[in-house]
Structures are given as structure tokens and as C-alpha cells.
């Protein structure tokens, strides 16, 4: 187990926003290590900094202090293009799905591969494959508005899977879905983690949901205050 590089490692990570003239310390020294195959939930009340942390890990934003290593690379040293390239290897799943409404489910999945420069035929094949994995092969030619919340989230998971990401980042993935569908989503995510060793970092304020994961990191006021291994 020597020299195993963590998928994500945060060392004393800080993020300060300027909200008008007031400096807001969203993250005050977060330490975190996520390894391949992990299923980590970050639990905390709103304003605790969990979404900020997720944005940092997702290379959507840069930290203002400390170190954040994604597969050994320090994110704060990357330029705009390098950050974009890194994002292609991260599977995002958002609370509000963030699908593009004018194109079909399959085209949404293909879009992320098209951004990564995958050829058209390969995109098509792979999109069908991952949509099959999430159980939506029959409805792949529907547009997001024609799908239920649960189905839309499964499209989003398929899209995240498409580029074979280093890890999944989920931001309240069941926050906008009814409980029955939420359970299906969680089962799907757990299956991906258990059967395919997909590394998952999930942000939630839902205690019940967090209990389904392997590790729970409790955040409060910009720092991780407690870790629970379930």
C-alpha cells in the first residue's frame, strides 16, 4: 500500500470569498483524503461550506489557500484550460440535474464525450451502453422535459459515467426527487460503487442518505469536524 496516490487529497484547504466588501471564509483549513473505491458523504447544514468544497474538488473554482491534489496534481497551480481538461475526467451529478433541455437524453450523454473529443460512432455506442447501465435505454430518445425527475437524474449519472471519470461528485443527488425514485438512485449509485469500484464523493444534508455511504464527513463552519465510518 506504499506510494498509493489518493484520488483526492486536501491539505489545510482554504477558500475566502469577497461578498461585497466583506470577506467570507467558506473553507477554513479542510483536510481530506479520498482513495479509489471510496464512497464518501459530506454532511452538514447549509452554509457549512460543503458545496464550496465540492466546487474546489470539481475544479470549478480555485482554492485561496492550502493544497488540493487531484490524483497528485495541485489544482491551484492549473490554468483555465487545464482546469477544463481536468473537469472532463470528473463525473458531476447535480441536485437540479443540469441537463440541456433542447437535446435528447442520449445527446446529453454524448455531449460530454463530444467535449472530450470522442468520435461520433464511439460516442453513440458508449452513450447507449451507459444509458443501459442506468436502465434508461428505452427512453434515451426523449428530451429531459419528457422524463421524470428520477429519470433525469439517471441521465445525469449516465452522462457522468460516459467519460470514465476518476471519481464522481454528487451534489444533493436526491434533493429534487421523490423518495421512491431517490431510493432507486441511491441503489444505482451504491451498485456502481460496489460493482465497478467507482469512487464517489457526495454532498448532502440528508442524514439518512449519508448513512448509505462508507464514510461520513461532518462539516461545520468551513471545516470537517467529525468523520464517521459506517
Amino acid at each position: 500500500m506504499t506510494s498509493v496516490v489518493a484520488v483526492v487529497e486536501a491539505v489545510n484547504l482554504e477558500k475566502t470569498y469577497m461578498l461585497g466588501k466583506v470577506a467570507v471564509n467558506a473553507l477554513r483549513g479542510v483536510n481530506l483524503k479520498v482513495e479509489t473505491g471510496d464512497f464518501v458523504s459530506i454532511l452538514g447544514p447549509s452554509g457549512s461550506g460543503k458545496s464550496t468544497l465540492l466546487n474546489m474538488i470539481g475544479a470549478l473554482d480555485k482554492p485561496t489557500g492550502g493544497k488540493l491534489l487531484v490524483e497528485g496534481t495541485d489544482v491551484s497551480g492549473l490554468n483555465d484550460n487545464q482546469l477544463s481538461d481536468l473537469r472532463r475526467r470528473i463525473g458531476f451529478v447535480f441536485q437540479f440535474f443540469n441537463l440541456i433541455h433542447r437535446i435528447t437524453a442520449r445527446e446529453n450523454v454524448e455531449l460530454s464525450m463530444s467535449i472530450a473529443g470522442v468520435s461520433k460512432s464511439e460516442r453513440r455506442r458508449r452513450a447507449e451502453e451507459v444509458l443501459d447501465t442506468v436502465g434508461l435505454k428505452e427512453r434515451m430518445n426523449h428530451k429531459p422535459r419528457e422524463l421524470s425527475g428520477g429519470e433525469q437524474q439517471r441521465v445525469a449519472i449516465a452522462r457522468a459515467l460516459a467519460n470514465d471519470p476518476k471519481f464522481f461528485l454528487m451534489d444533493e443527488p436526491t434533493g429534487n426527487i421523490d423518495s421512491k425514485n431517490a431510493n432507486e438512485i441511491i441503489d444505482l449509485v451504491k451498485k456502481l460503487n460496489e460493482q465497478r469500484s467507482v469512487t464517489i464523493i457526495m454532498v448532502t444534508h440528508d442524514q439518512h442518505l449519508a448513512m448509505q455511504t462508507k464514510r461520513i464527513l461532518q462539516m461545520f463552519d468551513g471545516a470537517i469536524v467529525k468523520e464517521i465510518v459506517t
Binding site: G58, L60, D80, N81, S84, D85, L86, R87, R88, R89, I90, F92, N98, L99, I100, L111, S112, I115, A116, R159, N163
Partner: peptide, 16 residues
């Protein structure tokens, strides 16, 4: 704006 945000989150470069 939101669509652009999605595209960028999916790794699209600014130039694209």
C-alpha cells in the same frame, strides 16, 4: 448562462 455553466462543468474550454 446556465447552459454555458453546464458545458464548462463538463470540461468545455473557454475558447470552445
Amino acid at each position: 448562462t446556465r447552459e454555458i455553466g453546464i458545458l464548462k462543468a463538463l470540461g468545455m474550454r473557454s475558447r470552445t
